[in-house]
């Protein structure tokens, strides 16, 4: 067997996996998105593109905008929190580097749903955070954290923070530490060195982290469902409701398809940028 032939054989399990668990469901979703429901609420294959008209009903515009807004805020917060953490681990982690990386990943061993659910206990009016605030005399009747947009964004940030930290850490770890010294050597202050040297050198990591956080955050429904209030409905909740409560699989599938198409635009933008950077790095 030629090496080339063998190489393509090794791709087979992965390819089969992708086709079976990604492309097939994707095809079904697409097919159902044009379907209808019968009298009993079962989805039937049909040609009913009107499902898509409903997706673009102005009624849902605020939901889509809110989702994008929350996801963007999540990306910003993850970046704000994640960059210093990654920076610390990569530059000053020393022999504890891998331990610290493991600690960042550790919460992922626990189901996301359970972790967010635990936050409802932590953020309750009589929960842990308010308990501490009360002990410190900062509040007497509890700050209302739960059921606010901030709680939702906080939950998303908590949920996806590691997706930001890891690629930035990788970029910082790859970066030649002499570059930072070169910046300082050339009269740049700490901040200027970060802005003109470290940030550009790790920008691909930031971009990768932002995409990895933004994509799941924009379609998330767990955080809004468990931590949100009456006005924090996200597109993920909307889709989930169509499948679970409204039993309207076709509309849910149409929403899913549009959301995926929207996210695909982001992916393409990202892949092109990353591809360009990789091509430049090879040159």
């Amino acid at each position: 067997m030629s090496e080339r032939r063998f190489a393509s054989l090794t791709l087979l399990p992965g390819a089969a996996w992708l086709v079976l668990l990604f492309l097939v469901p994707l095809g079904i979703t697409l097919a159902i998105s044009f379907g209808v429901t019968d009298e009993l609420g079962n989805a039937l294959y049909a040609w009913h593109p009107e499902n898509y008209d409903r997706v673009f009903d102005p009624l849902f515009a605020p939901v889509l905008l809110r989702s994008v807004g929350y996801a963007a805020a999540t990306v910003a917060l993850c970046l704000l929190i994640g960059y210093p953490v990654a920076y610390y681990i990569a530059r000053f982690g020393g022999r504890y580097k891998y331990l610290l990386v493991a600690l960042v990943v550790l919460p992922f061993l626990v189901n996301y749903l359970i972790r967010v659910y635990a936050w409802t206990a932590i953020l309750s009016d009589e929960g842990l955070v308010n308990g501490v605030l009360e002990d410190l005399g900062l509040t007497s009747d509890g700050v209302r954290f739960l059921n606010t947009p901030w709680a939702v964004i906080g939950g998303l940030t908590y949920g996806y923070l590691a997706f930001m930290i890891l690629p930035i850490y990788a970029a910082l770890d790859r970066m030649n530490p002499s570059l930072i010294e070169a910046g300082k050597d050339l009269y740049a202050t700490g901040w200027q060195t970060f802005r003109h040297v470290t940030w550009p050198a790790t920008f691909q990591g930031v971009l990768a982290g932002s995409v990895l956080v933004f994509l799941p955050a924009v379609g998330d429904f767990v955080s809004a469902q468990l931590l949100g209030g009456p006005d924090t409905y996200m597109v993920g909740n909307l889709i989930q409701q169509q499948f679970f409560d409204a039993n309207n699989f076709p509309f849910g599938a149409a929403l899913t398809t549009v959301l995926m198409a929207f996210l695909l635009i982001f992916m393409v933008f990202y892949l092109r940028s990353a591809g360009r950077a990789a091509a430049e790095a090879r040159a």
Binding site: S178, L179, E181, A182, K184, P200, A201, F203
Partner: peptide
């Protein structure tokens, strides 16, 4: 601090700014 010293360094790895 380094950025105020009237010295400059040529690094072994060159440390050129790729961007």
């Amino acid at each position: 601090p380094p950025y105020q010293r009237n010295v400059n360094t040529v690094f072994q790895s060159y440390a050129l700014f790729e961007n």
